[in-house]
Nucleic acid binder design. Sequence first.
DNA 1: AAACGAGATGTTAGCGGTAACCTCCTCGTT
DNA 2: AACGAGGAGGTTACCGCTAACATCTCGTTT
Lengths: 340, 340
Amino acid sequence: MDGRGRRTTMYDVAAAAGVSHQTVSRVVNGSPQVRPETVDRVRRAMTRLGYRPSGTARNLAVRRTRSLGVVSFMGPLFGPMSMLLSIEAAARRSGYAAQIVSAHGLDAGQVDAVLEEVLRRDVEGVAVIAPTDGQARMVDGLRAQLPVVAVEGRLGDDVPFVASDNEAGGRLVAEHLLDCGHRTVAHVSGPTDWGEARQRTAGWADRLVSAGVQPGPVWVGDWSPESGYRAGLELLEHPRWEEVGAVFAANDSMALGLMAALHRSGVEVPARVSVIGYDNTPESGWLQPALSTVEQQFDAVGAAAVERLVSLLEGGDGAAELLIPPRLVSRSSVSRLGRG
Amino acid sequence: MDGRGRRTTMYDVAAAAGVSHQTVSRVVNGSPQVRPETVDRVRRAMTRLGYRPSGTARNLAVRRTRSLGVVSFMGPLFGPMSMLLSIEAAARRSGYAAQIVSAHGLDAGQVDAVLEEVLRRDVEGVAVIAPTDGQARMVDGLRAQLPVVAVEGRLGDDVPFVASDNEAGGRLVAEHLLDCGHRTVAHVSGPTDWGEARQRTAGWADRLVSAGVQPGPVWVGDWSPESGYRAGLELLEHPRWEEVGAVFAANDSMALGLMAALHRSGVEVPARVSVIGYDNTPESGWLQPALSTVEQQFDAVGAAAVERLVSLLEGGDGAAELLIPPRLVSRSSVSRLGRG
DNA sequence: AAACGAGATGTTAGCGGTAACCTCCTCGTT
DNA sequence: AACGAGGAGGTTACCGCTAACATCTCGTTT
């Protein structure tokens, strides 16, 4: 800016360096078509005047913003937050800026507001982290306007979808429990309107059934430690509680609450009952007992999502689904019984 | 877009509706100077053509982007992440978009890259979440260009600064411990190049001293559960370990690791030794034992930071510092002894 | 010596909006 | 009947940059 509040533009630099604005543009963009000494003169003028190029003007001229929208429909849960960050990082690596818009609520008004917001920002494509159902339709408006990829939650059959493979994760859990000799396992699932929750449950039940084991009772939580705690209390009063040898909590927070309830009632983990979670938060390994869990590769998911989106922008086709396999982290909250 | 890839503009809408582009602009911006039936005609044309206004063009014309940069220099720790989200929310409430740029490393190259990145995006101001020292100078370049507010970590005497009052938090901890009758308390601090860490330690020590109590041994951690665990092991071998009645860990993660170490060695918390953390993560209340801790009001801090920044943009002065008081959350990891 | 071609730079016309100013028309006044 | 005011809308000139094409300068080529 000069004293009068007018911003320093290319023209100012051009005048100061005794060249045309186009030459300044060339210097800014590193064109090889400029003589070294001219480059120098222009550079000097730029720093002397404190010139800063206007990205806005550039974007308008080239008709690209190189920015992606990332809309997230939830609060500060570990999973969604990790996704957000990993997408931002991946986008930056690909030369795009990430416009993050997050809404905590899910009522129609909020969703609309968020979508308008993201459209207003001239993004070239959008990654939607919308793990609960019923947002699919609300996002239709977006899809008509620009490329969309769904992350972690399906948005419709025709929307490219990238996620951690929750069904595989559930299967991993069941497998591990079976390996350790457990034959009766209960489950504290996530909210049933979360696709991720349903898939973890499905994978778990599926693997159990295919091993001839009947899936045990299921409680529905809301991801919070408190809901895990409540489920734990109810579990303790279940008629067939005695038979339950292991519990699969659909995330680590609920596993924590669950273990708190068990602990409070003097039930030892893993001696009396094994517990396994999902997420592998940085804390999970330090709980007492150290929590066995499943780790999702958020970085890989984020990177894949951005890659898909960028490929769509560059005219590629919107390949169908991509599921990133999770991996089991075995710690001490699951006991190993003799083969039963 | 029409078939040929040209985007639908105001002029297209204007032509379709039989008005001038300016009238379209008036409709888009809700000017009252347009006859209802004209508004109608224009609206119809807009939806028919799938018109979407170009924020970029608008920004260029009005010479404002209404967006703020948020640069964060660290990974997915609870505190920083919470700040990020709270700032984004606050910015949106104030009608600004938040351009989030985060770097995990701290080497000069990275910092420069991040700063350039944020400048390139035409933000009107920047909130820097830079809790470690030595970034102050690196950020000087930024400050010369546009308003900056420092969040959680001081950036220099002349940069407006908003943070949670860590010294008060440290004092709160000491006070609570004293109240509970503890006279010998050890401390696992955060990294010494974090201002927050130093302040928590300082407040804690200060309050202790002013009560005539000698601050106990101090270990330096890195915020991770693992470093808390290591500190715990060392603590157990300290010559004066017998005298230590309480330990203050500078965040909940380290408190968790610490408790794991104590537990492993059969030391009971809080019976033998009390533990208190800092942060109040969603999990803290469900640990065993439930962790006493200090809660920072991230929402308030974020809101205040944005408010400061916006006021700077609108010509206000950059008031000095603002510290938001934290509050103590008392749970069961601290035992109450008789007054000693 | 004149024409040639390539490198270095300048000119002009947008990109899609907004702002400021101008015009036209319709009323109510006097 | 002439006049002024205000509502409704149109015109023109930017905003700060890039793209495409035009121009100028020389060292070569013939």
